[in-house]
């Protein structure tokens, strides 16, 4: 491992340390009141002190996120298989998938909350709507991107549609699917949080967005920041986790998973 790579890994950490130190210094020197901008040390203390409230909320939000991601993955891949099997199905359904994708979630969420009585189900549907599109469009693209030479080879040796699907189309689609999954992971979390905000304090759910709203009403700004920190942290963890999955699965064969310097 060279000095360059070490510096590359250290650079974002250094930036982070300077940012947090600058923030703390600004708050102390400027004597900024806590209800306007709390310093990072106070936020950390709040995070520890309020852990009993924040942790269950994080679990609620993550449950919705992962359930939505799971449904989006299964649904997105299933629909992609349907699209790849027939141009007509794709032409008929794709515009509606796009409509779901381009309509802002905050605009649909209130309606869904009215029509779906179970709030948890409504939140799940909201998160699913934003998460499934990248899986669908990437997997469809991947299924269509199988090497034409290999497709001919499969035909020459008399491969049936199932062998072609399992031995050629699905492996070809894998890098595309994993790329879509990484985007979907972040979007599922955003979808869950946005839906919780829309459900608001009136809902029975008690996810992190609910905690932020609640803390906002009570002017408990440090707790708002602590909850925000947890949401960001969860997003980063999901992104990194899916990235790791991608590297492990693609392992030796795909260019995206190969370290060029090695």
């Amino acid at each position: 491992m060279g000095l360059g790579r070490l510096l590359g890994a250290a650079a974002p950490v250094i930036v982070g340390v300077f940012f947090v130190a600058g923030w703390e210094a600004l708050v102390r020197i400027g004597q900024i009141p806590v209800y306007i901008l709390p310093g990072p040390i106070l936020i950390a203390q709040t995070l520890v002190a309020d852990w009993g409230t924040l942790w269950p909320s994080l679990v609620v939000t993550l449950k919705i996120t992962f359930a939505a991601l799971g449904v989006a993955t299964v649904g997105g891949v299933a629909l992609a298989l349907l699209f790849a099997s027939s141009r007509w199905v794709e032409r008929a359904l794709f515009p509606y998938a796009v409509i779901l994708q381009v309509t802002p979630l905050v605009a649909i969420a209130p309606l869904l909350l009215i029509y779906i009585t179970d709030v948890n189900v409504a939140l799940l549907v909201c998160a699913w709507i934003v998460a499934f599109f990248p899986v669908l469009s990437n997997t469809t693209l991947g299924l269509r991107s199988a090497d034409p030479g290999l497709l001919e080879l499969f035909r020459l040796y008399g491969a049936g549609p199932w062998s072609t699907l399992f031995l050629l189309r699905l492996p070809s689609a894998l890098p595309y699917f994993l790329g879509g999954l990484r985007i979907a992971g972040g979007l599922a979390l955003i979808g869950a949080v946005v839906a919780e905000f829309t459900a608001g304090t009136g809902g029975t759910a008690s996810g992190l967005a609910f905690r932020i709203l609640e803390a906002g009403y009570r002017l408990n700004i440090p707790r708002m920041f602590a909850a925000l920190f947890l949401i960001s942290g969860a997003g980063i963890a999901i992104f990194a986790g899916l990235g790791l999955v991608s590297r492990l699965v693609l392992g030796r064969w795909h260019d995206s998973a190969i370290d060029r310097d090695a």
């Binding site: 090497d147 030479g149 290999l150 001919e152 080879l153 020459l156 031995l167 050629l168 492996p171 894998l174 064969w253 795909h254």
Partner: peptide, 13 residues
């Protein structure tokens, strides 16, 4: 048997 201009191998295996 057919050998193409490109090796056309499956990269994942």
């Amino acid at each position: 048997g057919f050998v193409f201009q490109e090796p056309t191998l499956m990269p994942w295996t």
